[in-house]
Amino acid sequence: MNRLKTKLGKLELKNPITVASGTFGVENNNFIDFNSLGAIVSKTITKNEKIGNPPPRLYETSNGLLNSIGLQNPGLKGFIENVLPKYATYETPFIVSFSGSTIDEFSEILLELEKYDSISGYEVNVSCPNVENEGIAFGTDPKIVYKLTKQLASQTDKELIIKLTPNVTDIVSIAKAAEDAGANSLALINTLLGMSIDWKSGKSHIRRGIAGYSGPAIKPVAIQNVYRVSSNVKIPILAMGGVSNWKDALEFFYAGANVVAIGTYNFVNPKITIETIDNLNRHFLSRNQNLTEIIGKINGIN
C-alpha cells in the first residue's frame, strides 16, 4: 500500500513531494523521472515576457542563498508554446505559477491557462508589486488578497493555491483572507528578504540590493509560518523553505504541511526530491504509519 498518499485540496497526490517555483525546469529530467514526483510547479509566468534583473543576481550566504532573478520568464504566450507541451507528457499533476501587476492581469492569464487540460492547478504568486496600489505587494494586504482570490476562484474549478509571502506583519490574516475568498490551498513560504555587502568595498553583492533569501538557513522561519497558518485555517498547505532532506520534510508535516516543496536544494543535489520520497517511504513503512497520520501532529508545546 502507498503510505505517502496525500491531498492538496482537489488534487490527490501519490506522494507529498514537489518542487518550489523557480528552482526547477525541464532540464531536471536529466537527473530524475518526473513521473516519480508528487506534483510539478512551474516557474512563475507573467502576461508579457520579462527579461529579469541585471546581474549579479545570486549570492551564497551562510547556508542560504540570495537571489534577485526579477521573474525572468518567456511570458504567457512563450510559456504556452514552448514550455507547457514539454510537461504534457507526464502523468504527474502540473501546477502553473503565475503573477500579474493588476487583478485584471491575473484574471486574464488564468482565463487563457484554463484552455489547457494538461494543467492541474494554479499557484498564484502574490509577492509582486501591485501597480494599482502604489506598487505594494499584493500579498501584504488581506483585502487585496481577498479580492484577487475571489476573482480567480470564480474563474476556475481547478486547484487554486495562493502562495504567501512571509514578509508581512500578520501572515495569518492574509491566509484567512485567501481561505475566505475560496482558495483551495495555501503555499508558503516565498523567499524572505535579505541583503549582503562586501565588507572590503561596501559594495552590494546583488546588483539590485534587496534580494530573496532561501535555503537551509530559512527553515525554522518557514516552519514557524506553516505552524501558525495551519493552526488557523482549514485548507491544506503546500510548505517550503529550506528543505534539504526527508527529516526536514517530516518537520514540516508535523507543523501542518500536507505537501512539501524543495527549492534551493535542487541546485545542491538534483536528485534530492526522489531521494526524499524514497526515504519517507522507508520511514513510514518502518513505523507502520501513513503520512496523513502525522500531519499537524506537532507535540511538546504547552
Binding site: 525546469g25 529579469g52 546581474p55 537571489n67 532573478i69 538534483p270
Partner: peptide, 11 residues
C-alpha cells in the same frame, strides 16, 4: 546556482 539553465541566476 543550478548550472543547467533553470534558475536564470547567471544572466
Amino acid at each position: 546556482a543550478c548550472g543547467i539553465g533553470v534558475c536564470h541566476g547567471c544572466a
